[in-house]
């Protein structure tokens, strides 16, 4: 068991190092940061001096090792664009993205499970079919267009909700939250729907099909035979059985939510890490790009690791499998 955990952790570290290397090799191709750093009046000599200062003339492997060395000491470097430590910028921006991702996930789970149960119970009903079909519209248009359409309808035409930003935020320690002001709560609605729509559809469909399967099992038939009410069967037994896959999928989708936050944040000028990353790409702000990719990787690898270890704990057959792997 311990040996497996250690091996798995070592593998994860290797994965992280690979991700970093790939990410670093990419930066050369995103563009040249020097052009953005110097004004129109720069000379050829300026370009050379700054390239040298930034270490851009080193082979990218050398740049990578330098970055790793600094990162291990908790130093993610200084943003070219803002002239501030990257770790500070990310800490400042993370609450916005995490709150948006949290609300989106909540929206996706609540509506996803609710509508999923409904469409499963009324499998052939008109409403159920209608919901199933229209929910697909949400995933058949690109996110950016949905965001812009929502802005057009709810901000410009109706004037109900703000079109950009987070509204007023309140600081609690270093965390800035938009949950405590009216404008903050209003501001999160459109971006959260835009971002959560895809996951909502996914969860709804998953719940529906899991429910349909569970409802056919002997176990439910037996419950019915025992004379339990339909309500108790649907919610007490069937739904409970669908929750495990739903939780797993939701967990795995968190990464995807954070990634797609890049688009949503750009459309709504939401001041989170996704917008930070897009700005970094446009400006070729290598320290910010590197830190963002590393953070995302660490997060994904952690999720993966936890899921794997959980399976290991839950399913004893896998552990037998694992112990024979070495042979």
């Amino acid at each position: 068991m311990l040996a497996y955990v250690i091996r798995r952790v070592l593998q994860s570290i290797f994965v992280l190092l690979m991700v970093g290397l790939v990410a670093f090799s990419m930066f050369r191709f995103v563009g040249d940061p020097v052009e953005n750093l110097l004004g129109q009046e720069r000379t050829q000599a300026d370009i050379e001096r700054v390239r040298d200062q930034l270490g851009l003339n080193d082979p990218f492997a050398v740049q990578y090792v330098k970055f790793l060395g600094n990162a291990l000491q908790g130093n993610l470097g200084v943003s070219y664009r803002q002239g501030r430590p990257v770790s500070e910028i990310i800490a400042e921006r993370a609450p916005a993205t995490l709150e948006l991702a949290g609300v989106s996930a909540l929206f996706a789970v609540l509506f996803g499970v609710g509508l999923g149960v409904f469409t499963a119970i009324r499998r052939d009903g008109f409403m159920a079919n209608f919901i199933m079909t229209t929910s697909l519209i949400g995933v058949s248009l690109p996110t950016f267009l949905i965001g812009i359409l929502l802005i057009y309808i709810f901000a410009v035409e109706l004037g109900w909700l703000p079109s950009f930003g987070r509204g007023e935020t309140v600081k609690i320690g270093w965390w800035s939250t938009g949950f405590l002001t009216e404008s903050g709560l209003k501001a999160i609605i459109l971006p959260a729907i835009t971002l959560g729509l895809y996951q909502m559809t996914l969860i709804m469909r998953l719940v529906r099909s899991e429910m349909l399967e569970v409802l056919r099992t002997d176990y439910i038939k037996f419950a019915r035979a025992r004379g339990l009410s339909t309500r108790a069967i649907n919610f007490g037994h069937a739904l409970k059985n669908t929750l495990v896959p739903v939780i797993t999928v939701t967990g795995l989708q968190i990464g995807s939510i954070i990634a797609f936050a890049i688009i949503t944040e750009t459309v709504f000028q939401w001041p989170g890490v996704g917008l930070l990353f897009i700005n970094a790409i446009q400006f070729v702000d290598i320290p910010v790009m590197a830190a963002y990719l590393m953070l995302i990787s660490v997060m994904f690898v952690l999720i993966n690791l936890i899921v794997d270890l959980l399976y290991f704990v839950i399913d004893p057959r896998l552990s037998a499998d694992a112990s024979t792997r070495g042979h």
């Binding site: 812009i148 802005i151 057009y152 901000a155 410009v156 004037g159 703000p162 079109s163 950009f164 930003g165 750009t266 459309v267 709504f268 000028q269 917008l275 897009i278 700005n279």
Partner: peptide, 15 residues
Amino acid sequence: IQNAATRVAALLSGE
């Protein structure tokens, strides 16, 4: 406000 459509929307909606 980076995205052009959002910027115009913010002006049109009086924000």
